[in-house]
Amino acid sequence: MDSAIATTQAEHGIAEQQHEHVSVPQHRHHFATPEQQREAGSFGMWLFLLTEIMFFGGLFFAYLLFRNWYYDAFVTASNQLSVPLGAANTAILITSGFFMALAVWAAEVRKQTLLVLFLILTTLLGFAFLGIKADEYHEKYEKHHIPGASFDTSQFINPAAYGLSEKPLAPDAAQKTQLFFFLYFAMTGMHALHMVLGLGILFWLMIRAQRGDFSSGYVAPIENFGLYWHFVDIVWIFLFPLLYLINRHPLAH
């Protein structure tokens, strides 16, 4: 007989016979199988990360434009940033990402204690990063390098008086350093905001991991958060050379 719209058996039953999949209690019923759910979740997180790429992209373009228009001002301003601190932060964040990747592995092989440990290490290093950033921001505050009414360009007009071996800038060029610092605060600040949100989510994940939510095959939240955390890491990987390492050669040219 002509089939109209043919129908299937209960999808769960068949899928369980033919797949060796894990039957998890978190399986949402608008999905046919947990694999579909996991892949959809991962795909959804990647789409969200695409929006983040485009969001930061606007700031990166502004940076590209003004660095090229006001190169000297950007160089002088960039040399105010501390390379050791920036490099340390880069290493800290990379390590934090390493531990996050290990956390995903621990969830996949169902080692609960290791999972919690790696999540804790990820979080601690995240806080270390923010601590160093706070210290750097504070230093900028004290030197009056925060853009706005209190911005002070005297260090750039007459660097020798402050013991700096920089090329002095004319006053109007020195004003352009404000653009550099604005981009510095906007980009690292936006990055830090994402980290703070990430740390909040990490606390929640740690609590759930401790309860055993991720030790029986349900790894999607850890996996998808890992994607977010690594993305934040990648943004910093680009911010570090762009903001800190514009022109660190000795003052020879």
Partner: peptide, 9 residues
């Protein structure tokens, strides 16, 4: 994602 970023820039 990276293609769109490159288009923007």
């Amino acid at each position: 994602g990276f293609f769109m970023f490159l288009v923007l820039v």
